[in-house]
Structures are given as C-alpha cells and as structure tokens.
Amino acid sequence: MTTWTVDELQRIGDATELRVSSYREDGTLRPYVTIWMVRVGDDIYIRSMVNAGTPWYRRAKASGTGRIQAGGVERDVTFAEAAADVHQTIDDAYHAKYDRYGPGPVGAVVGPGTAPVTLRLLPRD
C-alpha cells in the first residue's frame, strides 16, 4: 500500500486549502474544486459541507479515485471511508485550523452530521 511521505503530509497539512478532482469513466479529470482539509496523524481528511449533495462529493464517491493539489503536492488518490472512531479528532483538527474564519464556515464541516460525508485520502502510485 502506498503511503504519504513525511514531506507530503507536512506540506498538505500546512496548506490552507486543497484542490480536489475526481476521475471520469473515460479517465479524464473533472475540474478542480477548492475545499478545506485537515491532517490527523498520518492521514489527510476532507469533508463535504453539511451534506452529501455537493457535486464534488457525489462525483468523488461515484468515482472512488481522483487527484489532489495542496502545498505544492499533486497526487492521485483513492477516496476512502474514515474510521468511525476518528471523527471527533477530525472535528478538533478543523477547529484548530479554521476557527479563525468564524463559527459559520467551520460549523458546516464539524459535528455529528459530518461523519457520513468525510473522506480519507489515500495516495496512489
């Protein structure tokens, strides 16, 4: 299994935003969407704001694979489910990183309703 390098984790984790795209059936990339992300340990997580209806999230779930750009790192990824026991830690990481933007934006990516719309990014070769 491919893992993030220490340098990639640092650079992605330190970036404020991440650009995410999913692959179409024909192998081409969809347009990138800019979102927030957090690093928790050796993992990178992204969340859809509030619900599973956002287009980028629906496409990522359907495709299962995509590409990300953040902190000067560009990698193909697999979109995986997050473990059930990590969601509070992810919430805490979002608060630590983004609370400076106020309760509205952060409130859209934390809390009990966000667990089903959380994706773990797994690097691919």
Rank of each mutant, 00 (worst) to 15 (best):
I35H: 02
V40W: 03
E25L: 01
R59S: 09
P116E: 00
W56A: 00
R24M: 00
G102L: 12
Y23D: 02
G102N: 15
I44A: 04
V117A: 01
D76N: 14
D43L: 07
G104N: 10
R67H: 10
G71I: 14
A70E: 11
P112C: 07
A96N: 07
V38H: 00
D42R: 05
Y32A: 06
G13F: 06
A70S: 14
P31D: 08
Q69P: 02
M37H: 15
V20T: 08
T118L: 05
Y94L: 03
G102W: 11
A115L: 01
R124Y: 08
D42F: 07
E25T: 02
G107Y: 00
S21V: 04
I46N: 08
Y23Q: 04
G72C: 08
T118W: 05
D26G: 01
V40C: 05
E81D: 15
G72E: 12
D76T: 15
A108H: 12
F79K: 13
S48D: 02
G71A: 15
R67Y: 05
A82N: 07
D14G: 10
K97N: 07
G111K: 06
V38T: 00
R67T: 11
Y98G: 01
D125F: 08
T3S: 15
V86G: 05
S22E: 06
W36V: 08
T114L: 06
G113F: 09
I90T: 00
D92T: 05
G107E: 03
L29G: 08
I35D: 02
T5H: 12
G102P: 11
A82W: 06
T89W: 01
I35A: 00
D26Q: 04
L18W: 07
I35W: 00
G104V: 12
Y45W: 06
R67W: 08
D92A: 09
S48I: 02
P55G: 09
T34S: 14
G41K: 05
D42C: 00
A70Q: 11
Y101I: 13
G72Y: 15
V73T: 10
Y32S: 07
I90K: 04
R30H: 02
Y23L: 06
G113D: 12
S22P: 01
V50C: 00
L18T: 05
V50Q: 12
N51T: 13
V6Y: 02
R120Q: 14
H95S: 10
R75S: 11
G71V: 10
T54R: 15
L122W: 12
I12G: 14
A62F: 04
Y94Q: 03
A84H: 06
A93D: 02
D43N: 15
I44W: 02
A80R: 15
I44L: 09
A83F: 05
W56R: 15
L122R: 13
N51L: 01
A70F: 12
L29N: 06
A82R: 06
L122H: 11
T114S: 02
I35Y: 03
V117I: 08
A108W: 10
